[in-house]
């Protein structure tokens, strides 16, 4: 959590291997990644990360089914397997009936559901969410947060940027940033996650 300009999104970019830190170190599963080559970083990004955005960022020209399928294509998953995985995910998120619709035909909450389905279809270990409920009204937001809780219980690490105090408490640890520094770091329960980090932004 933190006010605008605190460095939340930048931190998310660095954690997601989309950007590099000016200083400090970043270990992912015990491996220092800050000095890796571009190609290797991309590999790790592909292998471990899923992204969820405030503005959903679905691809307008693709249907729900195709949106969810896209990450699998970039991971060179075979067609039959792709179909199985997408079908399973659709089923799990209860959006089978919407699979042939285009993003603009969905409500905001439904779009974000698809966004999350797309982020996790390749079974990442780390889900990075940038204000995923920012554009949603509260009942939709709660649906999303419940989903996150469920995913977390199944073993996925989720890092969420949020302004919402209530949604922040769905997590197991709250880090408050201000002007690039950690102001507060509260563990709510015993962390179940396996990663470690010392962010110094």
């Amino acid at each position: 959590m933190g006010p605008s300009g605190a460095g939340k999104s930048t931190l998310l970019n660095i954690l997601g291997l989309l950007d590099q830190a000016n200083s400090g170190s970043y270990q992912l599963q015990g491996e220092a990644v800050e000095n890796l080559r571009e190609r290797k970083r991309q590999e790790l990004h592909k292998k471990h990360m899923g992204f969820v955005f405030q503005a959903y960022y679905l691809i307008d020209d693709l249907t729900v089914y195709e949106n969810i399928e896209t990450p699998l294509i970039y991971r060179k998953v075979k067609k039959a397997e792709r179909q199985a995985k997408v079908a399973e995910t659709l089923d799990r998120f209860n959006i089978v009936a919407k699979k042939d619709l285009f993003p603009h035909q969905l409500s905001g909450g439904q779009q974000q559901l698809v966004g999350i389905a797309r982020a996790i279809v390749a079974q990442p270990k780390l889900l990075l969410a940038d204000e995923p409920t920012g554009n949603l009204h509260s009942s939709q937001g709660e649906v999303i947060m419940d989903l996150f809780k469920k995913l977390h219980r199944e073993g996925m690490t989720i890092i969420q940027v949020t302004h919402n105090e209530k949604y922040a408490h769905y997590g197991s640890r709250i880090i408050e940033l201000q002007d690039g520094f950690i102001r507060k770091d509260v563990a709510l329960q015993t962390p179940a996650s396996t990663y470690s980090k010392q962010p110094q932004v």
């Binding site: 997601g16 989309l18 991309q42 990004h45 592909k46 960022y57 679905l58 990450p71 970039y74 797309r118």
Partner: peptide
């Protein structure tokens, strides 16, 4: 978007 989904 495509790059965050894994495209090079």
């Amino acid at each position: 978007i495509n790059k965050t989904l894994g495209a090079s």
